[in-house]
Design a binder for these strands. Structure first.
Length: 172
DNA sequence: ACGATGATGAAC
DNA sequence: TTCATCATCGTA
């Protein structure tokens, strides 16, 4: 009896959602099968003032989906090679999102999307069974002691925002 | 330590 | 239209 995370779960600050996603289950339909993997690492991109966030550039063709409803899938290509999976958080019109950096045995945001076949075609869609990508509640309770927080990866350009501890890792 | 590889946003 | 940059990763 697992519950699929709905809109209200994502309609909260990115930092809160990023923490609470740890231990939850990323579900991906691949062909006839459903792959389920525990989310182990996330990063929060908290708003337009966050210099590490794409949304700090304002509303552009790319960032438009970050301004969408909570639970919208935001995907983009980095370094010409890797699809990054994010879920938009907070109310519509406020750009914030959580980057999924690790699930199950995969560490690294580019590795997990490649392994599970998650691509930019999902950009702008809402998480859910219809699009074959959703998140379910975890089986076990995650305590705050199990969550390690660190600065985010690969955002050295973001001045004072580079140092903020907005990356969260589930200890095992 | 470095190159692959292509979209993005800003400058020109 | 060009140009520097980039929420990464495998190989060396």
């Amino acid at each position: 009896m697992t519950r699929m995370l709905q809109n209200p779960f994502f309609d909260r600050p990115a930092e809160v959602v990023a923490r609470e996603l740890l231990g939850c289950v990323l579900c991906v339909r691949v062909g006839e099968k459903i792959e389920r993997h525990i989310i182990t690492e996330t990063e929060a991109y908290v708003g337009p003032h966050d210099l590490a966030s794409h949304a700090s550039k304002g509303r552009t063709a790319r960032t438009e989906v970050m301004f969408g409803r909570p639970g919208t899938i935001y995907m983009y290509l980095v370094y010409g090679m890797y699809d990054m999976l994010n879920i938009v958080t907070g109310e519509a019109g406020y750009p914030a999102a959580v980057l999924i950096r690790g699930v199950g045995k995969w560490n690294g945001p580019g590795k997990l999307t490649k392994a599970l076949g998650i691509t930019r075609t999902l950009n702008g869609q809402s998480v859910g069974k219809k699009v074959g990508l959703w998140v379910e509640e975890g089986e076990t309770m995650v305590s705050s002691e199990q969550i390690e927080s660190t600065p985010r990866i690969g955002v050295a350009y973001a001045k004072e925002w580079a140092e903020k501890e907005l990356r969260f890792v589930l200890r095992r």
